[in-house]
Design a protein around this nucleic acid. Structure first.
Lengths: 211, 211
DNA sequence: CCGCATCCGTTTCGATACTG
DNA sequence: CAGTATCGAAACGGATGCGG
């Protein structure tokens, strides 16, 4: 049974670390921030985590009420993991970690993960005075997200969409570079590192939100 | 050699966790937030951490530039550990962890640590429109701090002080209870769980900052 | 293929003992 | 006081297997 060690300290910081301080726990939460994911989605998103590690973390997060496992309706014989309301409250912790960690050195051979870049995109759009309102299909490597703006605030969800205003297909590193330098979009398309379809003007507005 | 495992992920969240995600690392940082501490101070503050664990963490935090080891001038043959500027930037992370962790269940047999209560006191005072301006001597169990207000902002430092306006001696749990219920001060003094000296009106202002 | 469970080598942790 | 040395226990990481 994956009972985690406790610091035995009633300090709220130590209590938080008791709950989410183990290896991989917060990265699992990071992945779930953009919406429910199946076990195999999480495995692809966190290739460094072994399957039993993922099982242990999900069980423990579930036991602590931060993650909920939901069986999908009959057609799909699968289930998804999603954050509970309490789990979503971890977002400020991830925000502060991300703000601090950006100044730490990048690990050797470390590539950006899709979720990380999308969280950056979402955060930038939410800080933008005039965020994009169109619906986009974003494919990074072999995973697909829908970027939309249903309530005046950018949402990114882990599923495909029909009839987006524009679509983009690339890899996380290239998208991250584009967000930092939106002027590179045409060049990246020409070079083939980005495939774009649909309304390119709308797509341009999307990749400019962080600038 | 305590080379920590890396997530191999260039995401800023993962990079932060590479640096301060191991067991005990953030609790060491928490202890140093109130000022430089000697090895033995840290051992007393973190009784659950073994000595070699503490050594490993301090070495690693030092190697990452978050903690600095400083030899004390000749009279004392000792040295202290203190946060670097970069290490102090971890404070928002600890704040968000503390804010979230307060709603987590307290571990069985877990008592509050002195630093945790003092951080709560300091945070409350800094959010207070009219914080105390006197200098206090606060003793919790066998450690002593100076609470002062040199620049319009409450400071808590891990050393003794001469001629404080008021002094209080108790344990972390009792002080925490007092901060949540300042009206209990007189009763606690009468019951002997708190020893107070000096200007009691000033002391009352101090324990009322969180109310 | 999905969602694990089991096995096993390696790393890290934790407790105690010991040294300059 | 400020750490090292040692050693068993626990956690991690990778591989494989197995029932849907």
């Amino acid at each position: 049974m994956p009972t985690s060690r406790s610091y035995g300290d009633a300090c709220p910081i130590a209590r938080a670390l008791d709950a989410i301080g183990e290896r991989w726990a917060l990265l699992v939460v990071r992945e779930l921030l953009l919406g429910p994911q199946r076990f195999s989605d999480l495995r692809r998103a966190l290739p460094g985590a072994s399957s039993n590690m993922l099982t242990d973390r999900l069980r423990e997060l579930e036991g602590r009420g931060l993650v909920r496992r939901r069986r999908l309706p009959p057609p799909a014989a699968s289930s998804v993991y999603e954050l509970t309301e309490r789990g979503r409250e971890l977002e400020p912790i991830l925000d502060s970690l991300g703000a601090w960690g950006g100044a730490e050195p990048r690990p050797a051979n470390g590539s950006l993960t899709a979720t990380s870049v999308l969280l950056f995109l979402r955060g930038s759009a939410r800080a933008h005075p005039d965020p994009p309102t169109d619906t986009y299909r974003v494919q990074l490597d072999d995973r697909v997200w829908t970027v939309s703006n249903p309530r005046g605030q950018l949402e990114i969800e882990p599923h495909d969409t029909a009839a987006p205003e524009a679509s983009i297909r690339t890899d996380p590193g290239t998208l991250n570079a584009l967000l930092l330098d939106p002027a590179g979009l045409d060049g990246a398309i020409a070079a083939g590192s980005v495939q774009a379809e649909g309304n390119l003007a709308a797509l341009r507005r999307l990749v400019e939100v962080a600038a």
